[in-house]
Simulated scan of single mutants.
Amino acid sequence: MTRLRLHRENHLVERIGWLRAAVLGANDGIVSTASLIVGVAAASTAPGDVLIAGVAGLVAGAMSMAAGEYVSVSSQADTEKADLARERAELAASPEFERDELTEIYVGRGVEPELARRVAEQLMAKGALAAHARDELGISDTTTARPLQAALTSAATFAVGAAMPLLMVVVAPAEWLVVAVSVASLVFLALLGAIGARAGGAGIWRATVRVTFWGAFAMALTAGIGRLFGTVV
């Protein structure tokens, strides 16, 4: 008799909660801080003032990312809780209808009606709410909203990303500040795109080009505005 050897599979989708927040935070940290530094430096501001502006952008951006992620993901969590509460009430009021509803879901996925009914009955006997949450609402432990995790991850990675262009302000000569920050930030963005794609199992080149292109566009636009207003003022 052949024995099945079971093993745990680590699927990449399990990383989606923290990975999305991490990539978003780091990308925003690099792009927004580098753009701020390039824009201020292009207006012929003293290096000390550029550094102060960059540090202020780091702190404000990290706090903004944390608050924004917490609020938005909390809204998602509230919606999930409301849907689960509604489903729990429906299960208590009409379990037969909910069983038929679950059966139809499985039939729609290609399961034969009689087998789909038996599957629905067995899954509901084990955990009716869990079965409906997963198969009807699309809510599972893997994809459920985690506000605090998203907030902390975004704030931390934003600070790390923002620190990279700030470091160039400290080490680069004043006359080469704009060029040094721009080039270094594009390199950082390319690395971020590659790391994020690698962690998520996606194509590295497409992610790298996408992140780098939009970062370059943001910095070029901000530098142009800074130079324009610096000349006018």
Rank of each mutant, 00 (worst) to 15 (best):
Thr2Lys: 14
Leu6Cys: 03
His7Ile: 03
Asn10Phe: 03
Gly17Lys: 06
Trp18Asn: 14
Gly25Pro: 05
Gly25Cys: 07
Val31Glu: 00
Ala34Phe: 12
Ala34Asp: 11
Ser35Trp: 10
Gly39Ile: 09
Ala42Val: 07
Ala42Trp: 01
Ala43Asn: 09
Gly48Arg: 14
Ile52Lys: 14
Ile52His: 08
Gly57Ala: 11
Gly61Thr: 13
Met65Phe: 01
Gly68Met: 03
Ala77Trp: 10
Asp83Asn: 15
Glu87Pro: 02
Arg88Ala: 12
Ala89Glu: 10
Glu90Leu: 14
Glu90Trp: 04
Pro95Asp: 02
Thr103Ser: 13
Thr103Tyr: 12
Ile105His: 11
Tyr106Phe: 09
Tyr106Met: 13
Gly108Trp: 02
Gly110Cys: 05
Pro113Asn: 03
Glu114Asn: 13
Glu114Ile: 11
Arg118Gln: 05
Arg118Asp: 09
Val119Arg: 04
Gln122Thr: 15
Met124Trp: 06
Ala125Met: 00
Lys126Asp: 04
Leu129Thr: 03
Thr142Phe: 09
Leu148Ser: 11
Leu148Pro: 14
Gln149Val: 08
Ala151Gln: 08
Thr153Lys: 02
Thr153Pro: 13
Ala156Phe: 05
Phe158Arg: 04
Phe158Ser: 04
Ala162Ile: 04
Met164Gln: 00
Leu166Ile: 13
Val169Asp: 05
Val170Leu: 05
Val178Gln: 03
Val178Pro: 02
Val181Tyr: 04
Ser185Met: 06
Ser185Trp: 01
Leu186Val: 11
Phe188Leu: 08
Ala190Tyr: 03
Leu191Phe: 04
Leu192Pro: 13
Leu192His: 01
Ala194His: 04
Ile195Ala: 12
Ala199Lys: 09
Ala199Glu: 11
Ala202Lys: 04
Trp205Phe: 06
Ala207Tyr: 01
Ala207Met: 04
Arg210Met: 00
Trp214Phe: 01
Trp214Asp: 00
Ala218Trp: 05
Ala218Asp: 05
Met219Ala: 06
Ala220Asp: 09
Ala223Glu: 05
Gly224Ile: 02
Gly224Tyr: 05
Leu228Gly: 06
Leu228Val: 14
Phe229Gly: 01
Thr231Gln: 12
Thr231Asn: 13
Thr231Cys: 02
Val232Phe: 07
Val233Arg: 02
